[in-house]
Amino acid sequence: MARKSSWEWSRTAQTRKSMLQAAREVFGEHGFAEANVSEVVARAGSSVGSLYHHFGGKAELFLALYEHHQAAHEEASAASVAKAEQEGVDDPVELLIAGARAYLAGAWERRDLVRLFIEGDGPPGFELIRRTRGREWVRQNAVLLRAGGEPLDRFMVAVLTSIIEEAAREVAASDMEEDAQEVIEAAMTLIRRLDPLKVLEEG
């Protein structure tokens, strides 16, 4: 089988990008259940056959959009934590805050997707995927905070993660960037006031 040329790979990547952008618009306007594949491909300037070739169907397209959104969150947070570490920050809570700030900045930039995935409908099995992703997020935060395996440790990390998640919901619901920034600062203040390192050390 002949290998694809760089032009063909570029065209494939552009087709997927166009479909994901069109899906973002259509799902955002209608929700998953009421969204129509024909509207997605029309906006993408493509065909139904191409959509099924690249994604497999409406449900798979929705999940691909979700994974793309989550990957953007994770990449931004990881880059922010790495930058803080390079600048000499070694306090686990401040590293968590650095990652949370990047996450919440992304929640504002992609607020339509945050609202879609948190408050909208989805295909069968989507809630399980979201919960599984949430548990992995808690695990990653536990590693960042150097938390142990005691129940109090796990609960504290879950609480901190929930604060960030709820802040993302409020950020996405904000009408103005200034309002969103106030939510972000409030969440960071709350995390610091909880003094999680003290709790984890005493636990």
Rank of each mutant, 00 (worst) to 15 (best):
V114W: 10
R115M: 03
A82G: 05
E85S: 06
L145C: 05
R43Q: 15
A102F: 09
M156Y: 03
V157T: 01
V40W: 05
Y66G: 00
H68C: 05
P92N: 06
E202T: 14
V37G: 07
F62H: 14
G203C: 13
L200S: 06
T15M: 06
M19Q: 08
G31Y: 12
A102N: 09
M188G: 00
Q70E: 08
R135A: 14
L200R: 09
L190W: 03
K17D: 13
Q140D: 12
V26H: 04
L20D: 08
R115I: 01
E185W: 10
A107S: 14
K83T: 12
M1P: 15
V37P: 12
Q21M: 13
D195M: 13
E202R: 15
T15R: 13
M156Q: 05
E25H: 12
E202P: 02
E182N: 07
L63D: 12
I129S: 09
L145H: 08
Y52S: 03
R16T: 01
R11L: 13
L190H: 08
A84V: 12
R3E: 11
A142P: 06
A186N: 11
A33S: 15
G57A: 06
T189C: 03
A147S: 07
V183L: 08
E202F: 06
L20Y: 08
S5R: 10
P124S: 02
T161G: 02
A71W: 01
E60G: 01
S77V: 08
R111P: 01
S77L: 06
L20A: 07
M188F: 12
V157Q: 04
E170I: 00
L113P: 04
E136M: 04
E202L: 14
V40Q: 05
G106I: 06
A107P: 03
R43L: 15
A168D: 00
I129D: 04
D175H: 11
V157F: 05
Q86L: 13
R139S: 10
R146L: 01
Q140C: 00
